[in-house]
Design a protein around this nucleic acid. Sequence first.
DNA 1: GTCTATATAGCGATAGAC
DNA 2: GTCTATCGCTATATAGAC
Lengths: 209, 209
Amino acid sequence: MRKIDPEVHAEKRRQILDAASICFAEKGFEATRTADICQKAGISSGKLFHYFKSKRDVFAAIFAQGKSEDTARLNEASRAPTTVAALVGFFEEALSHQGNPVLAGLLFEAIAFARRDAEFAQALERDELHTRDQLVALVETAIAKGEVAPGTDPLQAADWLMGLHDLTILRAVWDRKQAPGTDRSMIETLVRSILSASQRQPGTSGENS
Amino acid sequence: MRKIDPEVHAEKRRQILDAASICFAEKGFEATRTADICQKAGISSGKLFHYFKSKRDVFAAIFAQGKSEDTARLNEASRAPTTVAALVGFFEEALSHQGNPVLAGLLFEAIAFARRDAEFAQALERDELHTRDQLVALVETAIAKGEVAPGTDPLQAADWLMGLHDLTILRAVWDRKQAPGTDRSMIETLVRSILSASQRQPGTSGENS
DNA sequence: GTCTATATAGCGATAGAC
DNA sequence: GTCTATCGCTATATAGAC
């Protein structure tokens, strides 16, 4: 005989967010109508605006539910015996996300939305910087272990590794033409190339902020 | 005493498209108001709809004005003495586009729009396939010249090279964190890595489609 | 707490004067 | 050919019944 079960409330919220995720991933923020979300969630308009104060609020809530699994996976990698191999594994994992159109679509639309909403952009960037810092730490570990050359610039390596990560996931959004068979070995080659090419160069500006 | 100068007409069209390009690149298709375009172009609403039948029409016209300069640049590359070096040069050129927010933004919004408009998506894909075919031909030339290994799969290499190209331009859209000093050498390393890693593998499925 | 009905506002596109 | 005024529509968000 409880008054308002907080679990029921959270569950309902999640249910709405799941429906909204699919809509936003497919059609983007502005093209998605709140009516679309309500229909997919099987609720009425009034209910949606009871749980969320605006459409923007729904969108933001999808991404606010915390740290992505990337964080956990990269933490695992930091404890692996061979750091570089664990790093390669992390990127190969990203390949499997390619098959998930909702996840890839959401990531794309998040970037699109961030271009128009400064507050959201800031939150997104905070997450990205966190991931980058984890990568920097991993590269430093690999250097300490002697797995990669001592002159490697961890920041530059991390930047390009993040680029590779984005590319791997996002290409699924606008292009399905990748040969799936040989991708894993290509990913491994590229990860290792980025690591070995990120040399701190004495003449050039290896350090900038 | 000419009736309607076709050049004046074309010039006016271009003027509208230039203004529209900036708006679309900044805010995307749906968030851009026709009023925004009119204001930026210094015209009235009636005029816009005299030259274009709809907002979608304006957007499509921006990209319909033909083959990108990429086509011409890749054609040049096919006549260069060292094919691989020319290829590297093509990708280094893409780095300079990074500084052009309108170009990068337009490319991003084109992809976003293509996700919702099948006809536009088809046109965009046609252009992409053309670029990819050019890259395939270049890789084949390089193989014939003995610049890259004979067992290289031109299609796989071209796919990943296009990915690198997209990444180079699009990262400017959501991320400004790349270390500019050492990018050129990184690009070269990655181009060469992709070429050498695209080996037709006997066991795995090197050919699909 | 939930749903139905609707207020409000802003957009794309047009009609018609000049 | 161009501009002004405005129509018709659709979408978000709310108010009030149950």
